[in-house]
Amino acid sequence: MPVDIDIAHVAHLARLDLSADELEGYKNQLGLILEHAARVQTLESDATMENAHPLALENRYREDVRRDSLDRDEVLAQAPETRDGYFVVPPALESE
């Protein structure tokens, strides 16, 4: 049985502004994919995945060496809108 999903909620979490038709289409596809993916629940094992790295690396610290950062103008040149060395965005908070 396909998995039932609150697709509008998921799309909001993912910050995707999708139309009602698009949401319906994705909901159906995801239901089928998750039905297949739910086969992971058939695993009879209590193994745990604490470290996804196959070589079980230990945490390492790099040498504290000074290194040039990227050129600010070159980086800002890729932004859709900038002003005085800053990225420009519309209001982040709505005013009353």
Binding site: V10, A11, L13, L30, A38, V40, Q41, L43, S45, M49
Partner: peptide, 24 residues
């Protein structure tokens, strides 16, 4: 969307957590 769902509250253990056990 699939990944957001698999990580979202209430579904994490059944999907993402279990997938990590399969990986192990």
């Amino acid at each position: 969307l699939l990944g957001t769902y698999a990580l979202s509250a209430g579904y994490y253990d059944a999907f993402y957590g279990q997938a990590q056990r399969v990986r192990a």
